[in-house]
Lab assay of single mutants.
Amino acid sequence: KELVLVLYDYQEKSPREVTVKKGDILTLLNSTNKDWWKVEVDDSQGFIPAAYLKKL
């Protein structure tokens, strides 16, 4: 599985998104959309702007 590093805090703005903190390491589930990547946070899944993430 691929991991990503969160570069900036992000507060979810819709139920399909997730809240993350700078420095979090998350599992990347889908990066086919260049603007929004799907990640797994704890036991939930959701989208975060790709610009907030860096592949490890």
Results as ranks from 00 to 15, higher is better:
7 L>I: 08
49 P>D: 03
48 I>G: 02
47 F>A: 03
56 L>S: 03
16 R>C: 15
48 I>F: 02
15 P>Q: 09
21 K>P: 01
45 Q>R: 10
38 K>D: 03
42 D>M: 12
56 L>T: 05
17 E>R: 09
47 F>N: 04
18 V>W: 14
42 D>L: 12
45 Q>W: 15
49 P>L: 05
17 E>W: 07
25 I>C: 05
27 T>K: 12
35 D>T: 14
17 E>V: 06
50 A>E: 04
35 D>K: 14
37 W>N: 01
10 Y>A: 01
50 A>N: 03
9 D>K: 02
21 K>W: 09
52 Y>I: 15
47 F>S: 03
22 K>M: 07
22 K>T: 06
22 K>N: 04
42 D>F: 10
44 S>E: 12
34 K>H: 10
54 K>S: 09
9 D>T: 05
36 W>Y: 10
20 V>C: 08
48 I>P: 02
44 S>Y: 14
10 Y>T: 01
32 T>I: 08
6 V>C: 07
18 V>Q: 04
51 A>P: 08
43 D>E: 11
20 V>M: 02
44 S>K: 15
38 K>S: 09
26 L>W: 04
56 L>P: 02
53 L>H: 02
32 T>K: 10
39 V>N: 00
49 P>I: 04
35 D>V: 14
54 K>D: 07
55 K>F: 07
5 L>K: 05
16 R>A: 12
47 F>T: 04
7 L>Y: 02
36 W>N: 02
13 K>E: 08
20 V>I: 05
13 K>Q: 13
1 K>L: 12
10 Y>E: 01
47 F>R: 03
54 K>T: 09
48 I>Y: 02
37 W>Y: 04
5 L>R: 06
1 K>I: 12
18 V>H: 04
5 L>W: 05
49 P>Q: 04
54 K>I: 13
36 W>T: 03
17 E>P: 09
40 E>P: 00
27 T>F: 11
56 L>C: 13
48 I>T: 03
12 E>F: 15
40 E>Y: 07
52 Y>D: 02
15 P>N: 11
28 L>W: 02
35 D>Q: 11
34 K>C: 10
37 W>G: 00
2 E>Y: 10
5 L>H: 03
55 K>G: 04
5 L>I: 12
17 E>C: 08
10 Y>V: 01
29 L>S: 03
44 S>A: 14
9 D>V: 03
33 N>W: 06
44 S>H: 15
9 D>Y: 05
3 L>G: 02
11 Q>D: 13
47 F>Q: 04
34 K>A: 13
19 T>Y: 06
30 N>A: 09
7 L>A: 03
6 V>H: 00
7 L>R: 04
18 V>P: 02
3 L>H: 09
41 V>F: 12
52 Y>G: 06
8 Y>M: 13
8 Y>F: 13
55 K>V: 11
48 I>M: 13
33 N>R: 08
8 Y>D: 08
25 I>A: 01
32 T>R: 10
31 S>Y: 07
12 E>S: 15
55 K>M: 08
17 E>I: 06
6 V>N: 00
28 L>V: 05
7 L>H: 01
11 Q>M: 12
4 V>P: 00
25 I>M: 05
4 V>N: 00
50 A>I: 05
41 V>R: 11
19 T>V: 06
55 K>C: 10
36 W>Q: 03
51 A>M: 12
39 V>M: 01
53 L>I: 06
39 V>C: 07
23 G>T: 01
15 P>K: 10
21 K>A: 08
15 P>I: 09
23 G>E: 02
36 W>D: 01
51 A>R: 15
50 A>S: 14
6 V>L: 02
35 D>Y: 15
45 Q>T: 13
12 E>T: 14
37 W>H: 02
52 Y>T: 06
26 L>D: 00
30 N>T: 07
43 D>S: 13
56 L>F: 09
51 A>L: 11
10 Y>C: 05
25 I>E: 02
52 Y>C: 14
4 V>C: 11
20 V>Q: 01
41 V>P: 00
41 V>G: 08
33 N>L: 08
3 L>M: 11
12 E>P: 14
55 K>A: 06
34 K>Q: 11
21 K>R: 13
32 T>P: 04
22 K>E: 07
8 Y>H: 13
6 V>E: 00
6 V>Y: 01
21 K>S: 09
53 L>T: 04
13 K>F: 09
13 K>R: 13
35 D>S: 10
50 A>V: 07
29 L>Q: 03
4 V>Q: 00
16 R>E: 11
29 L>K: 04
39 V>Q: 00
8 Y>R: 14
43 D>V: 07
14 S>I: 06
22 K>P: 03
19 T>I: 06
11 Q>S: 11
56 L>D: 02
39 V>Y: 01
18 V>C: 09
12 E>N: 12
14 S>R: 09
3 L>W: 13
21 K>Q: 08
48 I>S: 02
43 D>N: 14
13 K>C: 11
46 G>R: 10
33 N>I: 05
27 T>A: 09
55 K>H: 07
49 P>W: 05
51 A>Q: 12
52 Y>Q: 03
16 R>F: 14
4 V>G: 03
29 L>P: 00
18 V>S: 04
15 P>V: 08
55 K>P: 11
38 K>R: 10
49 P>N: 04
22 K>G: 05
45 Q>I: 14
26 L>S: 00
10 Y>P: 00
53 L>C: 15
51 A>Y: 12
19 T>G: 05
53 L>R: 00
10 Y>I: 02
5 L>F: 07
31 S>M: 08
18 V>Y: 07
30 N>F: 05
52 Y>V: 12
23 G>P: 01
3 L>C: 13
21 K>E: 04
6 V>M: 02
46 G>Y: 15
43 D>Y: 09
50 A>T: 06
40 E>H: 06
48 I>H: 01
51 A>G: 10
38 K>E: 15
12 E>Q: 15
54 K>N: 05
36 W>M: 07
25 I>T: 05
48 I>A: 13
56 L>G: 02
10 Y>W: 08
54 K>V: 13
44 S>W: 15
12 E>K: 15
